[in-house]
């Protein structure tokens, strides 16, 4: 049975915050509000990472997702069509079908979760440290790391080239 300790309460609050942010994001009408609630969700997820002893990941989550990605989205929206509001949905059956779809998905997910036996031993996350992470990434997995960084660089250069081509025409 689940124990009611501080960690559980913190997890409950953080997950409610994360889900709440996501629900608000779907229900808001203005695009800027949506991005702000998305940033709120990202921040709550960083809190869950802290609970799992992954402080490094939490800091990176805040830095990249809450900070950089949200600001990039806000910039994009404000510089383009920032007075836009989403039109209300008109199809009456749409909501019913999406509800059925989501319920079926939840059912399948729960079914699989309860059927899967988790026999593996849980890794000890308490003694995780940043230098251990650095050594794994830069020594053991250095070639995949470099390959991913080259891939990202290619994407970056490609984006710049595409944007320049459009502005010329």
């Amino acid at each position: 049975m689940i124990e009611m300790n501080g960690e559980f309460i913190a997890f409950l609050i953080l997950s409610i915050m994360a889900i709440g942010g996501a629900v608000f994001m779907l229900n808001f009408v203005r695009v800027v509000h949506m991005v702000l609630s998305l940033a709120f969700t990202m921040l709550s997820i960083a809190g869950i990472y802290v609970l799992l002893n992954a402080e490094f990941l939490a800091a990176i989550q805040v830095l990249i997702y809450t900070g950089a990605v949200s600001i990039l989205m806000l910039f994009g929206i404000m510089l383009t069509r920032h007075r836009d509001q989403e039109a209300e949905g008109v199809r009456p059956w749409h909501k019913f079908f999406s509800f059925v779809g989501v319920a079926a998905f939840l059912g399948i997910l729960l079914h699989t979760l309860y059927r899967t036996p988790f026999t593996e031993e849980t890794a000890d996350v308490g003694r995780f440290s940043v230098d251990w992470l650095g050594e794994t990434v830069f020594k053991q997995y250095v070639i995949p790391f470099e390959a991913v960084s080259v891939l990202l660089l290619v994407a970056l250069v490609g984006a710049v080239i595409l944007a320049r081509k459009e502005s010329k025409s």
């Binding site: 990176i60 805040v62 830095l63 809450t66 900070g67 949200s70 910039f75 404000m78 940043v130």
Partner: peptide, 25 residues
């Protein structure tokens, strides 16, 4: 005494930018 204290500072301080941007908007 955070193990990633420096990163924590940099990460959290980047949230203020959202406040400034939304205030101006």
């Amino acid at each position: 005494d955070l193990a990633v204290g420096l990163l924590y500072y940099i990460a959290i301080s980047s949230i203020t930018t959202i406040g400034i941007l939304s205030g101006g908007w």
